[in-house]
């Protein structure tokens, strides 16, 4: 409420395209992505920064977009799930999730995939334990994780080439 009246303008890149928008001070990055940019692949599953469904990349790092204000992303490069592969295609990590049945309802999935991409960018050849640990900030209620972990290991391998 303290930001009332202030409507900062922000410029950033989303999925490689430059974007300019006016936001309220209290607008969260996830709201900007979903409502202003109409990129609804980024989901909101909680209000306490626990579930990770809202995970996107900000300058190459995985962040929970419900946990930052849109104004904080001013000048940044943001990648969302829609930006991983050309329309209608999947990148090797997405393909690995499909191959290993690493998703059921799909609601946690964009966040999981974004987290997984960041994880393997940091650690291209992770162990199973490292993957399980690395996914700690993302909750999946459907899969029991086993197939997600298998998918991330396989996706990492495919991305290593």
């Amino acid at each position: 409420m303290g930001f009332e009246g202030a409507m900062p303008e922000i410029s950033l890149s989303i999925n490689g395209a430059p974007v300019t928008g006016t936001v309220e001070g209290r607008t969260l990055l996830v709201e900007f992505i979903r409502e202003t940019m109409k990129l609804t692949g980024t989901h909101t599953g909680c209000d306490t920064s626990q579930c990770g469904a809202c995970t996107v990349h900000l300058d190459g790092k995985a962040v929970k977009s419900c946990t930052m204000l849109a104004v904080q992303a001013d000048g940044a490069e943001v990648t969302t799930i829609e930006g991983l592969a050309p329309e209608g295609e999947m990148n090797p990590m997405q393909q690995a999730f499909n191959d290993h049945h690493g998703l059921q309802c799909g609601f946690c999935t964009p966040g999981m995939v974004m987290r997984a991409m960041a994880l393997v960018a940091d650690n291209p050849d992770p162990t199973e334990a490292e993957v399980r640990h690395g996914l700690e900030g993302n909750i999946c209620r459907c899969t029991g994780y086993q197939n997600i972990v298998a998918a991330v290991l396989d996706g990492a391998k495919a991305l290593r080439g």
Partner: peptide, 18 residues
Amino acid sequence: RRVEDLRFLTGHGRYIDD
């Protein structure tokens, strides 16, 4: 393999809040 996965994995699922 699941046919619904492509839309879920690419951010094109259509959930209620979408």
